[in-house]
Simulated scan of single mutants.
Amino acid sequence: MISRIRPIATKVLVEEDSLSVLLKRGGSLHLPLRLFPRLLTASPEQRSDVRISASGAGLHWDQLDENLSVTELMQEAERRHRDERLSSQVPADFPWDPTPALLSGSQPKLAGRWLDGRFVVGLTAEERWVRWDMCEDLAQQLVPKTLKDAAKYPEHSHDVTLRRIRRAIANKRWTERVETDWLMQRLRALLGW
């Protein structure tokens, strides 16, 4: 959650791969330098020539013509922290982009969206978490349904039963194909089949 108190910078440290800002009321912000192309390509001397505004709300590199808002840095740090927390909850094998965009034409293209001041291709960490949570919940709900189907048709193998469940899911169109693949693997694991 973004603090209602405006963050005030007291010290700035630009290292080879990170930007750190110490804050007046405690705490600090740490962001990868790759987010700031001018700072990333600058010399160590240019990076260290930073001036904190009188209010502590802005950072200025006069040699590089770079100005950063401490509030915006805090928002970016909080977004990155949230994304890392959400990403850590999603299994590594869950698909990142279940619906890749296709654009017509002879030249390769990226289909992206402008979200929160940044260009995003594919799912955001939050969108991926929501898709995974839905698939995990569906897998949990399908366990008793699959067991019921297996009991109703004891002549069917586990694979046949899972194929029947997969067809039912595909007909509902709740998930994309790659998500359905993951869902069926998860259901198989939950059942111990």
Rank of each mutant, 00 (worst) to 15 (best):
Ala54Ser: 11
Arg51His: 05
Leu23Arg: 02
Ser43Glu: 05
Leu40Trp: 06
Arg79Tyr: 08
Arg34Ile: 05
Glu66Val: 13
Leu29Gln: 07
Leu64Trp: 07
Arg85Asp: 00
Gly58Phe: 02
Arg25Thr: 14
Lys11Ala: 15
Leu13Asp: 06
Ala42Tyr: 10
Arg4His: 13
Leu73Asn: 12
Gly58Ser: 03
Met74Gly: 10
Gln75Arg: 13
Asp62Gln: 09
Ser53Ala: 14
Leu29Met: 06
Trp61Cys: 06
Glu66Leu: 13
Trp61Pro: 10
Asp93Cys: 03
Gly27Cys: 04
Pro37Phe: 12
Met1Asn: 06
Thr10His: 04
Leu22Thr: 13
Glu76Gly: 00
Glu72Asp: 15
Ser53Arg: 01
Arg80His: 08
Asp93Met: 01
Thr41Ile: 02
Val70Cys: 05
Ser69Ala: 09
Ile8Asp: 00
Gln46Arg: 12
Ser43Trp: 03
Pro32Cys: 11
Glu72Lys: 10
Thr10Trp: 00
Glu45Ile: 04
Leu64Cys: 12
Asp17Cys: 02
Pro44Tyr: 03
Gly56Tyr: 06
Ile2Ser: 07
Ile5Asp: 05
Leu31Ala: 07
Glu66Gly: 10
Leu86Phe: 13
Arg51Phe: 05
Asp49His: 08
Val12Phe: 04
His30Pro: 02
Leu86Gln: 12
Arg85Met: 10
Leu29Phe: 05
Ser20Thr: 15
Val12Tyr: 01
Lys24Thr: 04
Phe36Thr: 07
Arg80Thr: 05
Gly58Cys: 01
Pro44Phe: 03
Ser20Asn: 04
Ile5Val: 14
Ser20Val: 15
Ser43Cys: 03
Gln75His: 09
Leu86Cys: 09
Glu84Asn: 15
Ala54Trp: 04
Arg85Trp: 01
Ser87Thr: 14
Gln46Pro: 02
Pro44Glu: 04
His81Phe: 06
Arg4Ser: 13
Gly56Ser: 06
Leu33Phe: 05
Arg85Ala: 07
Ala42Ile: 11
Thr71Asp: 06
His30Ile: 15
Ser43Ile: 02
Lys24Ala: 15
Glu76Ala: 12
Pro44Leu: 01
Glu78Ser: 08
Asp17Arg: 12
Asp93Leu: 07
His30Met: 07
Ala57Leu: 00
Ala92Ile: 11
Leu13His: 01
Arg79Gln: 12
Ala9Phe: 08
Leu13Gly: 02
Leu68Trp: 03
Gln75Ile: 15
Leu68Asp: 09
Glu16Asp: 14
Val70Thr: 05
Ser69Asp: 08
Leu59Pro: 06
Ser43Arg: 03
Ile8Lys: 14
Arg85Phe: 05
Glu15Met: 09
Leu64Val: 10
Pro7Ile: 13
Glu78Met: 13
Lys11Cys: 05
Leu68Val: 09
Leu29Asp: 07
Thr10Gly: 08
Leu31Gln: 04
His60Val: 15
Gly26Glu: 06
Thr41Cys: 02
Ser87Gly: 15
Leu33Tyr: 08
Leu39Gln: 04
Ala77Lys: 12
Arg6Val: 14
Arg34Gln: 12
Thr71Glu: 11
Arg51Ala: 11
Leu19Gly: 01
Asp17Val: 08
Lys11Gly: 03
Ser55Ala: 09
Val12Gly: 07
Arg85Pro: 00
Glu16Ile: 11
Ala54Arg: 10
Ile5Leu: 02
Glu76Pro: 00
Ser87Tyr: 06
Glu16Asn: 08
Glu16Arg: 13
Glu78Leu: 15
Leu35His: 13
Leu39Cys: 12
Gln46Ala: 15
Pro32His: 09
Ala42Met: 11
Leu39Trp: 09
Ala54Thr: 08
Val12Ser: 01
